[in-house]
Design a protein around this nucleic acid. Structure first.
Lengths: 249, 249
DNA sequence: ACAGTATGAACGTTTTTGATTGATTTTAAA
DNA sequence: TTTAAAATCAATCAAAAACGTTCATACTGT
């Protein structure tokens, strides 16, 4: 049995059983314990698995878990429902911009079977997009360690090279008078530019964002289609004067 | 059996079984082991297959393994020593380009206390750089899932906006006549451009790369300072005609 | 006949492998 | 909680397998 075959075998075995013990692999492959041990060490270096005492387990979804863990589960469920709905707008063959942010991040699993091209300025996004086999371009720019977003002049210049069919943005504040806002002026600039380069722009917002105002203005409410969920009826009444879409539940 | 016939036979056998062992081919063709070996080497140069220890696999089948993996621990130790040495060239306040690649990746921990600005096209690099508190710009571009590198026209355009004091590149092959080579033409283009934008370019290479020739040429040997480690003395004799630096051990 | 290429055997080198050792971690009993 | 036994681990070493290189020979087409 070739080394590569053995590696693939181990990964298959792991994918199937979630957890493997070294002895099980030894028995199944007829290779020595030392060899299997070496295989596991190398596969761990490749981040294809994670070693534990006695065997190995599937690698942790570090980035996703990280970005997901800081929000409450209820909020997360809401975001996922919102994201799934937003993803239905995307048609085959389109080009899409995904803003860096946790809500747009949740859209990715729902895009996996569409033949689309995605551009994003989110570092965490590009990895998940690739795992789902979606052709992905990353904008250049300065890395903001806190949010994993790329911003600045380079990002703007990169964006100028693209035109999008659809553009999905996350925001921190929604206000009738002050429009969409977010804490970071540089990220706001990226969002504004992306939406101006897009045939159609969508803002993904759960109810917690309404009537909040953050530091940096992105644009007026009317400049994008707002995809909302669980908003109080009186708010929706105001919103429906604008182009607003509500999740069908 | 004619050479061409044998080649075709091997490719058919490979297409059918996904992976082949040298001994199996020897038995099936009644040719000598040497001949089959030569066949495989040539077919690999034609990118018709990919050699692994003991046989060959379909190309692109598990390139993930080759590119992301860092082979044995011994190789890794060698790379780390090389990386530490290379990092000593970087002075305070300089701007540095770090190529996507495993050897340059190992440099990052040794850069952490310097006040420098780093530009990279490596997705994995930018995260570690940020953990070490280093100001980091990422080039834009198309995401290559195999290597985690950004490539293409966007990457080139992003790079044009910078000038570097130093630029560190990984390569797959070093050859007196054919220069530095790497498997992917697009990555080669990025490396070449980056080095041309840099006051000083360094190629990091362990001894396993010497006398290897990969598919895409990056540039001639003389175009960069080669940082080598553990190279046989006779090779060094040749090298020292060029600008070459050896790790002090 | 001759130059150029392909072949197979032989050689020394590199890589992989399995067994052994002593250290470390877990488990279970005191 | 402490202690001892069992299991697992990393490190080392030598044997085996696979490797590239060289060289002499056989084959090819001109």
């Amino acid at each position: 049995m070739l080394t590569n075959e053995r590696h693939e075998f181990i990964l298959n075995m792991l994918a199937e059983k979630q957890t493997i013990k070294i002895q099980d692999v030894v028995d199944a492959t007829a290779a020595s314990e030392s060899t299997i041990r070496r295989d596991l060490t190398e596969l761990e270096n490749q981040q294809k698995l994670e070693r534990v005492f006695g065997g190995a387990v599937l690698p942790g979804r570090n980035l996703m878990e990280q970005s997901v863990s800081d929000k409450s589960t209820q909020h997360l469920q809401e975001k996922i429902r919102l994201a799934r709905f937003a993803a239905t707008f995307v048609q085959e063959g389109e080009s899409v911009f995904l803003d860096a942010g946790t809500t747009t991040f949740q859209m990715i699993p729902f895009l996996k079977d569409k033949k689309i091209t995605v551009v994003t300025n989110g570092l965490t996004h590009v990895e998940l997009l690739n795992e789902h086999g979606i052709t992905t371009y990353l904008t250049g720019g300065l890395m903001k360690s806190k949010t994993g977003a790329l911003v600045g002049a380079q990002t703007a210049q990169s964006l100028q090279n693209y035109r999008f069919d659809r553009c999905f943005l996350g925001v921190n504040g929604i206000h009738e008078e002050y429009g969409y806002t977010t804490p970071d002026p540089e990220e706001a600039a990226v969002k504004r530019l992306a939406s101006s380069l897009s045939r159609k722009a969508y803002v993904l917002a759960d109810h917690s964002k309404y009537n909040k105002v953050s530091f940096a203005k992105i644009m007026d409410l009317a400049a994008a289609v707002m995809v909302v969920d669980k908003m109080p009826d009186d708010i929706l009444a105001v919103m429906e004067k604008k182009t607003t879409v509500k999740v069908e539940s």
